[in-house]
């Protein structure tokens, strides 16, 4: 099978669970301490796509949490094939951050496959985000998922969706 590698970035506000989502998903964790020093943590995950004859390796850049990006963080996004935006369902403000980040990023980089994850679905009682808001979000992303990094709920499906979109793009180009 042909190996294809793609860079995807996980972005979102502080403490929305980006790192937890990455950990839930990946099989190769790589030096977590860089997250605090350099501001990014890198994990990898291989997904086999026998139907396409491809081993799709995702290099996941877990960019330190922020609602606005500075230059360094922007630099980390360069060359990505897709984005995972993460919001915290128990904090409405994080959803605003997602929208803000998406605007910032699309100004600087071209439109790319992106999914939005509204995390912490296990804390449904503290939920601050309405279904309407989630549906509205769906217009701007290739998919919106209510996930729980804690239980693993929908995490894999969300990233798998993004990976599939990226792979389509790559295969179309070539």
């Amino acid at each position: 099978m042909t190996p294809i590698t793609s860079k995807i970035c996980i972005v979102g506000d502080f403490a929305v669970g980006k790192t937890s989502i990455a950990e839930r998903f990946v099989n190769n964790q790589f030096s977590e301490k860089y997250l605090t020093t350099v501001g990014v943590k890198i994990d990898t995950k291989e997904i086999e796509r026998p139907e396409s004859g491809v081993i799709h390796k995702l290099v996941i850049w877990d960019v330190a949490g922020s609602d606005r990006f500075d230059d360094t963080q922007y630099a980390y996004l360069r060359g990505a094939s897709g984005y995972i935006y993460v919001a915290d369902g128990t904090r409405a403000a994080t959803l605003a951050s997602v929208r803000q980040l998406q605007e910032q990023i699309s100004q600087r980089y071209s439109d790319l496959p992106a999914v939005a994850l509204v995390n912490k679905s296990d804390l449904a009682s503290d939920w601050e985000i309405s279904d309407e808001q989630i549906v509205a979000l769906g217009a701007r992303f290739n998919g919106v998922f209510q996930t729980s990094a804690k239980t693993g709920d929908a995490v894999e499906g969300a990233i798998d969706k993004l990976a599939a979109l990226i792979l389509d793009t790559v295969l179309q180009d070539s």
Binding site: N28, F30, G39, V40, T44, V59, D71, T72, Y76
Partner: peptide, 21 residues
């Protein structure tokens, strides 16, 4: 050898970090 893809990405990240900082 560690995960060379991760090493590659991390090196790029550090490269960016150094450059920006």
């Amino acid at each position: 050898i560690k995960d060379s893809d991760a090493v590659s990405a991390m090196f790029t990240a550090i490269q960016d970090f150094v450059k920006e900082s």
